[in-house]
């Protein structure tokens, strides 16, 4: 494996960052489309404000600009691992509740889950390049959400997709920051604006 700061590692780092930015951008578009479909198919009010839900990673972060590159990657990785589990749960519930009756929503959910899984793998690649390696997943799997009513499930799904759309935006910015620094440098100065 190339040393962290060799030219090929820097090239690989920049390539991973730019591909990650494209992935996050595409994911955000798909999540926003999925959100529209979800709201319509679940009969929800698009303007409804939904309180924070335990287990759903919140994209908003304080002092975003003071974060190191590694911190950004680790926080992104933890979040997308959680979203991967949450989306898988939503897909399973979707099949259980609707069976074959709404394959459109099911397919859209599955497509976004695929992208989240790919993006998660991408983040792990970046962390490997940081010669840190991604944290193991043992025990990282969020506990299955407590049984709730169908309406609360619908709201939780809404909250998951809204936060995921915000995270895709934040990831794009995080990766842009990372692209400016060489791999393994850890700390990244960044301009004083936050997502």
């Amino acid at each position: 494996m190339a040393a962290a700061d060799s030219p090929s590692a820097a090239l690989r780092h920049r390539d991973l960052c730019s591909r990650g930015i494209r992935l996050a951008g595409k994911m955000r578009l798909d999540v926003i489309n999925l959100l529209d479909t979800y709201v319509e198919r679940q009969g929800l009010d698009a303007s409804a404000s939904v309180a924070a839900v335990e287990g759903v990673p919140v994209a908003a972060v304080e002092r975003w600009d003071e974060q190191t590159g590694t911190q950004r990657l680790l926080e992104n990785l933890v979040a997308y691992r959680a979203f991967r589990a949450l989306l898988a749960q939503m897909l399973e519930e979707q099949r259980e509740q609707l069976g074959e009756a709404d394959t459109t929503l099911g397919r859209a959910l599955a497509a976004v889950l695929l992208q989240v899984s790919a993006f998660t793998y991408h983040l792990e690649e970046l962390l490997r390049l940081e010669s840190r390696g991604p944290p193991g997943e043992e025990g990282a799997e969020p506990p299955p959400p407590p049984p709730v009513s169908l309406f609360e499930r619908k709201l939780r799904g809404l909250r998951v997709l809204r936060e995921l759309a915000q995270w895709a935006l934040r990831s794009t910015r995080d990766l842009r920051q990372l692209a400016k620094a060489s791999p393994g440098s850890g700390s990244v100065p960044s301009p004083p604006n936050s997502p």
Partner: peptide, 18 residues
């Protein structure tokens, strides 16, 4: 297919439903 939501809106961001 996903059922009819019955929502009880208590305040700006507090609602219960079935």
């Amino acid at each position: 297919t996903s059922g009819t939501n019955v929502v009880c809106i208590l305040s700006e961001d507090e609602m219960e439903g079935t």
